[in-house]
């Protein structure tokens, strides 16, 4: 419960990514707690909410928000690479995003307030690992790859293999999220975004669905789904996705969709919403997506 701790913490910046890898590696070796500060939109709130810390356990805070190698958006053929510390507002305004990945632009519009969008980053969204993260749901729909780097080198983790449970992941503590890579769907692919919160903006999702699909001759040939706030991790709805990929659109009906969604998620009741309502809405938004594709 204290912002007062902030003045006692060590805030640090490093020269570049390679120095950051070294620094993070050393801190890990020595068992010193550390935090990489990107937008800080989650972390600052956590500092305010938690109990005060005894001074010997203050984390070292490394500010990566200005690090050039973690920022920027680059389109290389059909691969869109977004630096981990790129802000939502930058995504909303970038021509490559607007043209090739409008789902990301649409999702980013619904993230917090404009002030949050001006600070918040996809890398931070992935690192904090909240299942309510709108950004991660959108990346899931693209089957994005998360690029991480450490002293041991760089590797690409498919988003589907990243989250292992509530705020846990396969990323090692010293692996820094560097970028997100998206293999873009074709230009005529259908995309879908629907966020259901308590009000029209500035509310954490009760349910949010991000989806993309490429359809050829009445058959879905590429499909990705990401749903926020219905499971301990971003829900990928594997059975629902399999339904879309395995069945011609004109043969998919609401009943089939409902069955698949029910077997994919068992949402809980918490302070924001109830389990039954979430399941009901989850089914409704997937049906809406299916209708947008021309399903029966």
């Amino acid at each position: 419960m204290t912002i007062a701790d902030l003045s006692s913490m060590l805030f640090d910046r490093v020269r570049d990514l390679s120095a950051l890898c070294t620094r993070v590696g050393e801190l890990s070796d020595e068992g010193i707690p550390f935090v990489l500060l990107a937008g800080g939109t989650d972390w600052m709130v956590e500092q305010e909410m938690r109990e005060p810390l005894a001074s010997d356990v203050f984390p070292t805070v490394i500010d990566v928000s200005q690090m050039g190698e973690l920022r920027g958006i680059r389109l290389d053929g059909d691969i869109l690479r977004i630096g981990a510390a790129t802000r939502y507002l930058e995504m909303r305004r970038h021509p490559a995003v607007l043209e090739r990945a409008p789902l990301l632009e649409r999702m980013a519009r619904d993230v917090g307030a404009i002030q949050i969008q001006a600070r918040g980053t996809l890398g931070g969204n992935i690192a904090t690992g909240s299942p309510a993260a709108d950004g991660v749901a959108a990346l899931a729909a693209f089957d994005a790859l998360v690029v991480v780097k450490s002293r041991r080198g760089e590797r690409h983790i498919p988003l589907s293999e990243l989250q292992t449970g509530y705020k846990t992941s396969t990323r090692a503590p010293d692996e820094i999220i560097v970028a997100i890579e998206i293999y873009l769907p074709s230009r005529n692919a259908t995309w879908f975004w629907r966020k259901v919160g308590t009000r029209k903006a500035q509310a954490i999702s009760k349910v949010a669905l991000a989806a993309i699909a490429e359809v050829q001759g009445g058959q879905v040939v590429r499909c990705g789904l990401g749903m926020a706030s219905v499971a301990p991790v971003t829900a990928l709805l594997p059975r629902t996705r399999e339904l879309f990929l395995s069945t011609r659109l004109d043969a998919i009906d609401d009943f089939m969709i409902d069955k698949c969604v029910e077997s994919d998620i068992q949402p809980i009741t918490d302070v924001r919403s109830t389990g039954p309502y979430r399941l009901h809405v989850a089914k409704a938004v997937v049906r809406e997506f299916a209708r947008s594709l021309g399903a029966a």
Partner: peptide, 23 residues
């Protein structure tokens, strides 16, 4: 106001939701 055992579960502006200009 969400209560549990006499305690308030949502004592913050992030989860005690009031309308914004958009609403």
């Amino acid at each position: 106001v969400v209560w549990k055992d006499g305690l308030i579960q949502n004592p913050r502006m992030t989860n005690y939701i009031i309308p914004t200009a958009l609403d």
